[in-house]
């Protein structure tokens, strides 16, 4: 255990030199490098932060744009849908109208055809009835029947209202009595007398024969016309026949 003071002083110098050397070759460079690296890393972090912020901003703006695009698209789509709906309903309406038109046209045709058919039928049936009745009455016609007809006519004259009687009385033209059969003079005078009793003796009376009247008598004077004949009954028959056909006409279009 000895101390060599020369060695001690040498070692002190050595140590101080080492301190200087290490300071220059170790501590300063290493610390400087670490500081610079720290700074670099911090800069990068800052940069990354700012980039992130920017990216976020851009993302937000893109999202907004996307949302607006989406909205626009939705609006367009809705508009198109609306238009499509309108067009569809228009087309449906048109089709309906067209159908209705065609249908009504067809109905009309059907109804016309039916009417024609019914008319024909009526006409034919009436003709048949008329022919049958005419034939039957012609076969039955004799003086007694003709007398009955004249009587019936006279009764009808008696049933005339006051107004008609006055109109007949004022008439300046002669009255014409048409019959389907030949009146004998006695019957004619009976009739003339009956007329004169009713409307006054001034009215002249002519007689004609019209076979179409079918067992009938008709008095015509100016606008007045008084008659009793089978034609009227036949017309009533026609009317009732037509009435019988009516339900067919009304129900069929709906069917």
């Amino acid at each position: 255990m000895e101390i060599n003071w020369i060695t001690v002083s040498a070692q002190v110098v050595n140590f101080l030199i080492l301190v200087w050397l290490l300071k220059h070759f170790l501590y300063q460079p290493v610390i400087r490098a670490m500081d610079r690296r720290d700074q670099k890393i911090r800069n990068r972090m800052d940069e990354a932060d700012s980039r992130e912020q920017e990216a976020l901003r851009e993302k937000q703006s893109y999202q907004q744009k996307l949302a607006s695009f989406e909205k626009e698209r939705e609006e367009l789509l809705e508009e198109t849908r609306q238009e499509a709906r309108q067009t569809r309903s228009q087309m449906i309406d048109q089709a309906r109208e067209e159908t209705a038109r065609v249908r009504s046209h067809w109905m009309r045709e059907v109804s016309e055809e039916k009417t024609a058919f019914i008319d024909g039928l009526r006409h034919q049936s009436l003709e048949v009835v008329e022919t049958v009745i005419r034939k039957a009455l012609q076969d039955l016609a004799d003086e007694r029947l003709e007398e009955r007809i004249a009587h019936t006519f006279i009764r009808k004259l008696h049933e005339l209202d006051e107004e008609t009687r006055e109109a007949l009385g004022r008439s300046s033209e002669p009255a014409t009595i048409a019959t389907s059969f030949e009146l004998d003079p006695g019957q004619r005078s009976t009739l003339t007398r009956a007329i004169h009793e009713l409307v006054g003796a001034d009215l002249a009376v002519n007689y004609t024969q019209v076979p179409e009247l079918i067992c009938g008598v008709e008095l015509t004077c100016e606008s007045q016309r008084i008659s009793w004949n089978l034609s009227d009954y036949l017309e009533e028959l026609t009317a009732s026949v037509e009435k019988a056909f009516e339900p067919l006409e009304t129900t069929e279009p709906g069917a």
Binding site: M1, I3, N4, S9, Q11, V12, N14, F15, L16
Partner: peptide, 14 residues
């Protein structure tokens, strides 16, 4: 060198 009292004395003096 640290096994020498001269070195450790030098360091202690420092």
């Amino acid at each position: 060198p640290t096994g020498s009292l001269s070195t450790t004395t030098a360091l202690a003096i420092c």
